[in-house]
Design a protein around this nucleic acid. Structure first.
Lengths: 346, 346
DNA sequence: ATAAAAATTGGAAGCGCTCCCAATTTTGGA
DNA sequence: TCCAAAATTGGGAGCGCTTCCAATTTTTAT
C-alpha cells in the first residue's frame, strides 16, 4: 500500500515538500547532497507520487485514448488491429504515455463514452480509428478541443489531423508491377466500398491500368470486405472473366483467392498471379508465398503516438497530416515473366 | 474547450458549489427546482467535471489496467487475445470503467511500467494475464496492495484471486467424448508445456484415457504451441503412431492438423477424427467443421471485470477464484460412430 | 400559530501535488 | 575579508472536486 505523500518523504529527510518535488521532477537546482538523500528515501519507502494529484495541478494526465468505433467489428478477426495496437502501445511506452482503450460496442456506448473521452482532464489526446460510422463522434470530439489524430483518412471533415498511407498510389504500384511483369487481364477484389480504404485501393487499381493504357472491365472488378471468405467468393466470381492476374485489396482475401484457385485446379502463379495488400505477420503458411504491398502497420502505430504527442505539446492548429510509405514485397505468387523489373512504391 | 468548473456552474445558477456537486453525483437531498435548473445549465454549457480532481479527492480513478506481459507475443496472432479484450472492454463499459492497456514489449518496460501500474492513484485495479514469465511482476504488484485479478491460473503464487476455466476437466471431457464415439487410438497435440494451460490440457487428456482404462502411449503425444503451423507439424509426427482420433489443445492447431491430413490424402473424420479447443470465431471456413471444446472467452472478459470490480469494492482478502464452464460443441470432425452419445462438460 | 423535526443549502477544509516567490545559504571576485 | 551574485531551499497558494458540518429554509405536528 502506498499511502505516502510528498510531505512524508520531506519530513523524513528534513527538507520541504518543494525540494522533494524538485528531486522527483529532475529540476536542476537541488544540491547533490540533498538529492541523494531524498532519492534514497524514495527508493527505501517505495514512494510514488499520486497520479491524480499530479494530473490535477499540471493539467496533464499522460494518458491518451485509442477509440475504435462500433463499426470496427472486425477488431477480433482482422490481424490489422492487434498489430496496430501493438505499435501504439510501443509508442506509448516510448513516450511514457498510458494507453486508454475505448472499444465502442453499441450505440449507447458512443453516447455514454463521449464525456469520458472529451476534454475533461482524463486524456491528453485521442487516437481515433477512421470509419464512416464514427465520423459524427469525431466531429463532437474535435469540438471539445482535445488534441486528436485520426488513423486513416477521415470521411468528411478535412480540417482534422490524420495519419494514413497513400492507398491510391500503393494500389497503383501493385498494378504497375503486374503490368510490368506482362500480365494483360488484371482483375481486382476490392475492399468494402463504403470505406475510404476500399475505395482508394480501387481507384489506385483503375489509375494503374489507365496509366498503362489498359481498358477497365467491370467484369474484372468484384467487391470484397477484406475477409478470407469474401476473397474466396470473389475469386470464383472473377474466374469467368479469365483474369491472368488479380490484385487483392488485402492479404486475407488473397489467401481465400488462392484457396479458390486450388479448388478449381488452377495454379498460382502459372494460371493466375496474385498480389495482396498488408503483409501482416501470419501463422498459417500459404503456398505459394504471397507477393504483396507492405504497409508498415506497427510503425504506423508508433508514428501515430509521436504525432499525437507533438500535437499535445505544440498545439493542434493548423491540421497536419502524415502519409506513410508502402513497398512491394516480392515473393512467389506473381512468377517473373520478364527478366528485369524495377519496382518502387512511395 | 471545457475550462468550466463547478464554481462557474454554481455562479451561473445562483447556488453553491456543493449543490452542483450534489446534482452531478445524484445525491438525494436537492430540491427538484434547483436540480432542474442546474441540470439545464450543465447541459447548455457542456460542463464535465474534471476527472483528475475527482480522482484526487475520492481516491477512485474509475480506470482499471489490463497487463499483458512480454511473453504474450502471440498477442497479434492468436485470436484469443483480441476476443478477450473485447469482453473486458464490454465489461468496462458496463461497469463504467476506463480500460488502460499495458502491453509490455521488452524487459525495460516491465521495470518502468511498474510504478505506473502499482497503487499510485492512477488505477483502481489490475487485470493481469497469467504467464510464466510475468509471475515476478505479479508478485511485486500484489505487494503494492492494488486489487488484482489474474486471468488464468497463476504459476506459483496461490494467494491471489484469479479467474480461469477448468482446463483439466475440459480436456478430459473432449477425450471422453472421443472414447464414447468408439475411438481407440487417441492422440494429442498439446499446448506449450511451459504454460499452465498447456500442461493442464495434457493432464486432462491423460486422465481421460486412464479413466477409461486406456493405456497412455508416448508416441501419441506431441507438443505444440497453439499455432496452426505446429498443428500441421504435430499431425505429421503423430501419423506413424496410427491414431484414429486426435485431441488438439487449440483450434488453430487442429486447422493445421486437418491440412496435414488432407496433404497426406487422409480424410477427416473417416481416417482420423479431430477435436479442437477454443471455438473462437473464425473467418476462414474449415472443412469439415470442427468439433471443439468451447471456452467462453468473451464472457470470461466480462466476468473478469465484474470480479475485479467486486474486489475493488469489497476488499481483496481472502483471495477468491472463479472457474468458468466449458462445453463440447459437436460438429462434423468426429463423425458419429455410436448412435447415442451424452456429453457434458462442466 | 408555534415549536420541533426534516430537508435543503452554503462554507470551508483538504485530497497530494506543482510552481511562484521570497528567504536563506553558498560561492566567488575585489 | 566583505559584499554582491548565484544557487538552493521553504512557504503558500491553488488546481477542481467531494464531503463534513453548520446555517438556513421548509415541512409537519401540535
Amino acid at each position: 500500500m502506498n499511502n505516502l505523500t510528498l510531505e512524508d518523504i520531506a519530513r523524513n529527510c528534513g527538507v520541504s515538500r518543494s525540494t522533494v518535488s524538485r528531486v522527483i521532477n529532475n529540476h536542476p537546482n537541488v544540491s547533490e547532497k540533498v538529492r541523494k538523500r531524498v532519492e534514497k528515501e524514495i527508493k527505501n519507502t517505495g514512494f510514488r507520487p499520486h497520479a491524480a494529484a499530479r494530473a490535477l495541478v499540471s493539467q496533464r494526465s499522460w494518458t491518451i485514448g485509442l477509440v475504435l468505433p462500433r463499426s470496427v467489428q472486425s477488431f477480433f478477426t482482422d490481424p490489422y488491429y492487434p498489430r496496430l495496437i501493438q505499435g501504439i502501445a510501443q509508442g506509448c511506452n516510448q513516450k511514457k504515455y498510458t494507453l486508454g482503450l475505448y472499444l465502442l460496442t453499441d450505440a449507447e456506448d458512443e453516447e455514454e463514452i463521449f464525456p469520458r473521452i472529451s476534454r475533461s482532464g482524463s486524456l491528453d489526446g485521442v487516437l481515433f480509428q477512421s470509419d464512416q460510422m464514427g465520423d459524427q463522434l469525431i466531429g463532437k470530439l474535435a469540438q471539445s478541443g482535445i488534441p486528436m489524430v485520426i488513423i486513416g483518412r477521415p470521411f468528411q471533415n478535412e480540417k482534422l489531423s490524420y495519419i494514413d498511407i497513400d492507398n491510391v498510389s500503393a494500389a497503383k504500384s501493385a498494378v504497375d508491377y503486374l503490368v510490368d511483369l506482362g500480365y494483360k487481364r488484371i482483375g481486382t477484389i476490392t475492399g468494402p466500398l463504403n470505406t475510404s480504404v476500399g475505395v482508394d485501393r480501387k481507384i489506385g487499381y483503375i489509375q494503374g491500368l489507365e496509366g498503362r493504357g489498359i481498358r477497365i472491365e467491370e467484369k474484372l472488378i468484384v467487391e470484397g470486405d477484406f475477409t478470407e471468405e469474401k476473397g474466396y467468393e470473389g475469386m470464383i466470381k472473377l474466374l469467368p472473366a479469365k483474369p491472368d492476374a488479380v490484385f487483392s485489396a488485402s492479404d486475407r482475401m488473397a489467401f481465400g483467392a488462392i484457396r479458390a484457385l486450388h479448388d478449381k485446379g488452377l495454379r498460382v502463379p502459372e494460371d493466375v498471379a496474385l498480389v495482396g495488400f498488408d503483409d501482416l505477420p501470419v501463422t498459417n503458411p500459404v503456398n505459394p508465398p504471397l507477393t504483396t504491398v507492405r504497409q508498415p502497420v506497427y510503425e504506423f502505430g508508433i508514428k501515430a503516438v509521436e504525432f499525437l504527442d507533438d500535437l499535445i505539446t505544440t498545439g493542434t492548429t493548423p491540421p497536419r497530416r502524415i502519409i506513410m510509405g508502402t513497398e512491394i514485397v516480392t515473393r512467389e505468387s506473381c512468377g517473373a515473366r520478364l527478366k528485369k523489373i524495377e519496382t518502387q512504391a512511395k
